[in-house]
Computed example of a mutant assay.
Amino acid sequence: MLSYVNIFSKDVVKLSGFYRDVFGFTEIEEIRSPIFVGLRTGQSNLGFNAQDAYDLLQLSEFKDPTGVNFLLNFDVESVEDVDRMTPLAVELGARLIKPPYKTYYNWYQSVLLDPEENVFRINKML
């Protein structure tokens, strides 16, 4: 079982709040710290680590990554959810890269960058 996907973040409160507000996730308040916020997403959790976590995890040499290093995928219940959540994400600070479309592999999805320029998709398998 995948327990957490963690994102290194410049502002853990703001970025976790973005994902909470777009997707309706709930915070796991009992594990919050000054450098970490966790969200319940369903089967796994999403964690947000402050920049201090690089040093804590002995990852200092990787502290300034560039480019896209991962892609988060969020599955939703319907095509209408993709259409509703995409502009909501933009309103809350995301940048739309590719508006909702039907893929060649029969999914309906949009591609966005969150407020810290991490790429994510909102998906519905058709």
Rank of each mutant, 00 (worst) to 15 (best):
57 L>V: 01
88 L>Y: 08
102 K>M: 11
9 S>G: 09
111 V>D: 03
46 L>D: 00
43 Q>S: 15
6 N>Q: 08
40 R>K: 15
36 F>H: 15
119 V>E: 11
58 Q>L: 03
39 L>A: 06
31 I>H: 09
36 F>E: 04
58 Q>F: 08
6 N>Y: 11
23 F>T: 01
68 V>T: 15
41 T>K: 04
42 G>N: 06
107 W>A: 05
104 Y>K: 12
111 V>T: 12
121 R>C: 14
30 E>F: 10
55 D>K: 15
19 Y>S: 03
25 F>L: 02
60 S>V: 05
62 F>P: 00
30 E>L: 01
58 Q>W: 08
42 G>H: 09
62 F>I: 11
87 P>A: 02
62 F>T: 09
71 L>H: 12
21 D>S: 12
15 L>K: 09
44 S>P: 02
46 L>H: 07
50 A>V: 03
113 L>G: 00
22 V>R: 02
5 V>Y: 13
61 E>A: 12
50 A>Q: 07
48 F>P: 15
34 P>R: 13
13 V>H: 12
63 K>E: 06
83 D>F: 05
7 I>W: 10
85 M>D: 01
116 E>C: 03
15 L>D: 04
114 D>E: 04
104 Y>P: 06
17 G>Q: 13
54 Y>N: 02
93 G>T: 10
13 V>G: 08
59 L>K: 15
91 E>V: 08
98 K>T: 15
77 E>A: 10
71 L>F: 05
98 K>I: 12
99 P>R: 15
23 F>I: 02
18 F>P: 01
63 K>W: 06
29 E>C: 09
81 D>E: 08
106 N>E: 12
80 E>I: 00
15 L>W: 11
14 K>C: 03
34 P>W: 09
86 T>N: 07
12 V>P: 08
23 F>V: 00
62 F>C: 06
108 Y>L: 02
31 I>G: 01
98 K>Y: 13
44 S>T: 14
68 V>A: 03
47 G>T: 12
42 G>D: 01
47 G>Y: 08
82 V>K: 03
90 V>W: 02
66 T>E: 14
35 I>N: 14
10 K>A: 13
78 S>Q: 05
98 K>H: 13
21 D>R: 14
56 L>T: 15
57 L>W: 12
65 P>W: 11
44 S>H: 11
118 N>I: 06
24 G>R: 07
102 K>W: 13
